[in-house]
Design a protein around this nucleic acid. Structure first.
Lengths: 233, 233
DNA sequence: GTATTCTATACTGTATACAGTACGAAATAC
DNA sequence: GTATTTCGTACTGTATACAGTATAGAATAC
């Protein structure tokens, strides 16, 4: 079955939103975007409407579609959502998951370990990080929860990309600890470790976001960082 | 500022999806729907795309938009999501909420108490139930969490409407107990009460859904209950 | 009578045209 | 020089036309 034109546009635009190829706060020119993506305005707008419903872009009636801004508040809220969902999922996983499935994840952690040889790029590490959390949560067997979590992860990926630079050394060890607590069926420990692993201070988020927009505007046309909201907390 | 045409269509269609004025599993005829709602197909489809992204209706490429089916699995998953989100929110509320705000909710529970005199309709009671949960969770101050919760509540409203017939007597008392635990800042108790209050067995859900579609097809044209998925668990 | 192919219809998917409006730039007043 | 109004442009919002395809019904074969 063909995936459908709107679907294709949806994923292309989603990708653009995720890595901010579109500048934050910028109004999207539908005609230009449509031509750039080789489509017409109608299916483009349908894809944009879906993305707006999922929080990947903003929409203002009469003004059109606008690239979301880098908001401390939003990242903060999404990290809390992660904690809420992942912790609940984790309890279910500890109670119900098969040992086999947990063993698979352990194998994944082994294969992606960063030894003296293993030279992973930052993108790799971020992808592994997401994969670990999503796969573990998926063992809870709740589709709605899993898809919500995936959406959240996509929306905070730009942040993770900066955050990971600092946390990279710790991440691996923490993942292993969490998984071992799950395998030992120690729910309380697993939950406690997971919460500490995910938790971020608002100040950390603000710092990372500053770095984010610095990165975004490094090459050339630095205009006005008016697209970053609530830098102060 | 005018709310925009698509926005209006969005809410009208959302309402239709919530109370299943559209029959589950039924393909939506865009031309007919557009005429019925006094709009053109283009904005209609934009609204439908948003609703599809939020899970209020389904979409199959090449076949068009389809009213979601009554699914035990989905209701089950959404109830788990409620537990995950509301419990996490509750911990934040216990830790941070102002006494004033909690007092307001207590006042709301008083005003909506079902005395010998107070004759509330089932719709009223369901609305009060949603309001209690959403208002309490909102005190956690997380916009993403609140809006996700509201979406979930809209998606399970048809179910609540049946479920409440049975739970009506208990509900009020349980809400009061939960709130009192929060006011007493007893987080563990509040969480335990809330989890028990929300939790449903899959078998309960299946029974209620059967009643749901019985209700939907009571007047006249009973055709084929093929729109109910996974009646057996 | 049942299954299968063909055909007509009706619906979705997309392009495009047009209307209305927001926005920016130029011009004028002060 | 600064503020304000006017005007032109360009973009969004919506209707509509057309093309392609899924679907149902009729006709035919078995």
């Amino acid at each position: 079955m063909g995936k459908g034109r709107v679907e294709t546009l949806y994923f292309a635009l989603r990708q653009m939103s995720v890595n901010f190829s579109l500048r934050p706060g910028e109004r999207l020119n539908e005609v230009a975007l449509a031509r750039q993506l080789g489509a017409s305005r109608t299916p483009l707008r349908e894809a944009l409407n879906r993305l707006a419903a999922e929080g990947f872009i903003d929409f203002e009636p009469g003004r059109g579609f606008i690239c979301r801004k880098l908001s401390v508040r939003e990242v903060d809220d999404l990290y809390q959502m992660r904690i809420a969902l992942e912790i609940y999922a984790l309890r279910l996983v500890v109670a119900n998951a098969a040992d086999d499935a947990l063993g698979e994840i352990a194998g994944f952690l082994d294969r992606t370990r960063e030894g003296e040889s293993g030279g992973w790029t930052l993108e790799d590490v971020v992808a592994f990080d997401e994969y670990f959390h999503e796969t573990l949560a998926a063992l809870a067997g709740n589709k709605e929860l899993s898809s919500t979590l995936k959406n959240i992860n996509a929306r905070i990926r730009f942040f993770r990309w900066v955050d990971m630079e600092e946390r990279r050394p710790r991440t691996q060890h923490e993942h292993r600890e969490i998984l071992e607590a799950v395998i030992a069926r120690d729910g309380e420990l697993a939950v406690e470790l997971m919460e500490r692993h995910i938790d971020r201070r608002s100040s950390q988020i603000a710092d990372a976001l500053k770095e984010c927009y610095a990165k975004l505007f490094l090459d050339g046309d630095f205009t006005e960082p008016s697209f970053i909201e609530e830098v102060s907390i």
